[in-house]
Deep mutational scan, measured.
Amino acid sequence: MASDGVVVEIGKVTGSVGTTVEIPVYFRGVPSKGIANCDFVFRYDPNVLEIIGIDPGDIIVDPNPTKSFDTAIYPDRKIIVFLFAEDSGTGAYAITKDGVFAKIRATVKSSAPGYITFDEVGGFADNDLVEQKVSFIDGGVNVGNATPTKGATPTNTATPTK
């Protein structure tokens, strides 16, 4: 695992066909100046998982989280898009600690492993708008004895992609 920078880890949970599971997305290594904004994309298989919603985690402190935390689910493109932009203008609602960034709610549709993997990152910046190093650890849903650990090695991303 990367020793510096922010680590975004997609949790690994267990479920069975027809059940709804909650998959946490963790941030670790949050910089001392916090995270003022970030955007990134995960990939998944809508034939295996139906993403039914995404909720902000406990490290989102904006009293009205829909102003700073936004997501979009595109089953036709097989992606989930995340956007966080601190909304106070003063840094008061920045992410300042490690913990759960988001909770992905999904219904298991198939007995195949439900991988959720890193696809791309736009950027991560602290309260001074300084770009942060970030790496990703894939996860998803274990169905029966299947284990979604494909790509469990962190993917280092030093520069934003478009």
Results as ranks from 00 to 15, higher is better:
residue 1 M to R: 06
residue 4 D to L: 05
residue 5 G to K: 11
residue 5 G to E: 07
residue 5 G to Y: 10
residue 6 V to L: 08
residue 6 V to I: 15
residue 6 V to S: 03
residue 8 V to K: 01
residue 8 V to S: 11
residue 10 I to F: 03
residue 11 G to A: 08
residue 11 G to Q: 05
residue 13 V to I: 11
residue 13 V to R: 09
residue 15 G to I: 10
residue 15 G to M: 02
residue 16 S to K: 11
residue 17 V to I: 03
residue 18 G to F: 04
residue 18 G to M: 08
residue 18 G to Y: 04
residue 20 T to L: 06
residue 20 T to H: 06
residue 21 V to N: 15
residue 22 E to A: 06
residue 26 Y to A: 05
residue 26 Y to R: 11
residue 28 R to M: 04
residue 28 R to T: 08
residue 29 G to E: 03
residue 29 G to D: 04
residue 30 V to R: 10
residue 30 V to A: 10
residue 31 P to F: 05
residue 32 S to D: 10
residue 32 S to I: 11
residue 33 K to I: 15
residue 34 G to P: 02
residue 35 I to C: 01
residue 35 I to H: 02
residue 35 I to V: 04
residue 36 A to N: 01
residue 36 A to D: 01
residue 37 N to Q: 00
residue 37 N to Y: 01
residue 37 N to G: 15
residue 38 C to Y: 01
residue 39 D to S: 01
residue 41 V to Q: 00
residue 41 V to K: 00
residue 42 F to M: 03
residue 44 Y to I: 13
residue 45 D to N: 09
residue 45 D to L: 12
residue 46 P to F: 09
residue 47 N to I: 04
residue 47 N to S: 07
residue 48 V to I: 05
residue 48 V to Y: 03
residue 49 L to N: 15
residue 49 L to R: 03
residue 49 L to Q: 15
residue 50 E to S: 10
residue 51 I to C: 05
residue 52 I to A: 08
residue 52 I to E: 12
residue 54 I to H: 03
residue 54 I to Y: 02
residue 55 D to M: 15
residue 55 D to E: 12
residue 56 P to M: 02
residue 56 P to Y: 07
residue 57 G to Q: 15
residue 59 I to W: 03
residue 60 I to Q: 12
residue 61 V to Y: 09
residue 61 V to L: 13
residue 62 D to E: 11
residue 62 D to N: 13
residue 62 D to G: 12
residue 63 P to A: 14
residue 63 P to W: 12
residue 64 N to W: 08
residue 64 N to D: 06
residue 64 N to R: 07
residue 66 T to C: 11
residue 67 K to S: 10
residue 67 K to I: 09
residue 68 S to V: 15
residue 68 S to N: 15
residue 70 D to M: 15
residue 73 I to K: 03
residue 74 Y to E: 00
residue 74 Y to H: 02
residue 75 P to T: 03
residue 76 D to V: 01
residue 76 D to I: 01
residue 77 R to A: 06
residue 78 K to H: 06
residue 78 K to L: 03
residue 78 K to C: 04
residue 79 I to K: 02
residue 79 I to F: 15
residue 79 I to V: 05
residue 80 I to K: 05
residue 81 V to R: 00
residue 81 V to A: 02
residue 83 L to R: 00
residue 83 L to N: 01
residue 84 F to Y: 02
residue 85 A to W: 10
residue 85 A to N: 00
residue 86 E to V: 00
residue 87 D to N: 14
residue 87 D to H: 15
residue 87 D to P: 15
residue 88 S to G: 15
residue 88 S to N: 07
residue 89 G to Y: 03
residue 90 T to W: 14
residue 90 T to N: 06
residue 91 G to K: 15
residue 92 A to F: 08
residue 92 A to H: 11
residue 95 I to E: 00
residue 95 I to W: 01
residue 95 I to D: 04
residue 96 T to I: 10
residue 96 T to M: 04
residue 96 T to D: 08
residue 97 K to V: 11
residue 97 K to D: 14
residue 97 K to N: 05
residue 97 K to S: 11
residue 99 G to R: 13
residue 100 V to I: 10
residue 100 V to T: 09
residue 101 F to A: 07
residue 101 F to T: 08
residue 102 A to Y: 15
residue 102 A to P: 00
residue 103 K to N: 07
residue 103 K to E: 06
residue 104 I to Q: 03
residue 104 I to C: 09
residue 105 R to E: 05
residue 106 A to Q: 05
residue 107 T to Q: 09
residue 108 V to P: 09
residue 108 V to N: 08
residue 108 V to G: 13
residue 109 K to M: 07
residue 109 K to Y: 08
residue 110 S to D: 11
residue 110 S to K: 15
residue 110 S to M: 11
residue 111 S to E: 10
residue 111 S to P: 09
residue 111 S to K: 15
residue 111 S to M: 03
residue 111 S to N: 13
residue 111 S to T: 12
residue 112 A to T: 05
residue 112 A to M: 02
residue 113 P to D: 12
residue 113 P to M: 02
residue 113 P to I: 02
residue 113 P to T: 03
residue 114 G to E: 09
residue 115 Y to R: 09
residue 115 Y to P: 08
residue 115 Y to I: 07
residue 115 Y to H: 07
residue 116 I to D: 01
residue 116 I to M: 03
residue 117 T to Y: 08
residue 117 T to D: 07
residue 117 T to V: 08
residue 117 T to H: 12
residue 118 F to T: 05
residue 118 F to D: 13
residue 119 D to W: 02
residue 119 D to P: 01
residue 119 D to Q: 06
residue 120 E to I: 02
residue 123 G to A: 10
residue 123 G to Q: 00
residue 123 G to V: 02
residue 123 G to K: 00
residue 124 F to D: 00
residue 125 A to D: 01
residue 126 D to C: 01
residue 126 D to K: 01
residue 129 L to N: 02
residue 129 L to S: 02
residue 131 E to D: 08
residue 131 E to S: 04
residue 131 E to P: 04
residue 132 Q to A: 10
residue 133 K to D: 03
residue 133 K to I: 06
residue 133 K to C: 04
residue 134 V to D: 00
residue 134 V to G: 02
residue 135 S to R: 10
residue 136 F to S: 11
residue 136 F to P: 08
residue 137 I to Y: 13
residue 137 I to R: 12
residue 137 I to T: 11
residue 137 I to A: 14
residue 137 I to N: 12
residue 138 D to A: 11
residue 138 D to P: 11
residue 138 D to M: 09
residue 139 G to H: 12
residue 139 G to D: 06
residue 140 G to L: 12
residue 141 V to E: 13
residue 141 V to P: 13
residue 141 V to N: 13
residue 141 V to K: 13
residue 142 N to Q: 09
residue 142 N to H: 10
residue 142 N to T: 13
residue 143 V to M: 08
residue 143 V to R: 09
residue 145 N to E: 10
residue 145 N to W: 12
residue 145 N to L: 11
residue 145 N to I: 14
residue 145 N to C: 12
residue 145 N to K: 14
residue 146 A to L: 09
residue 146 A to M: 13
residue 147 T to S: 09
residue 148 P to L: 04
residue 149 T to I: 07
residue 149 T to Q: 09
residue 150 K to A: 11
residue 150 K to E: 11
residue 151 G to W: 11
residue 151 G to T: 14
residue 151 G to C: 10
residue 152 A to D: 09
residue 152 A to F: 10
residue 153 T to G: 14
residue 154 P to C: 12
residue 155 T to N: 09
residue 155 T to V: 12
residue 156 N to D: 09
residue 156 N to P: 13
residue 156 N to C: 14
residue 156 N to R: 09
residue 157 T to I: 10
residue 157 T to W: 13
residue 158 A to W: 13
residue 158 A to T: 08
residue 158 A to G: 13
residue 158 A to N: 12
residue 159 T to L: 11
residue 159 T to N: 14
residue 159 T to I: 13
residue 159 T to V: 11
residue 159 T to C: 13
residue 159 T to E: 15
residue 160 P to R: 12
residue 160 P to D: 12
residue 160 P to E: 14
residue 161 T to C: 14
residue 161 T to Q: 12
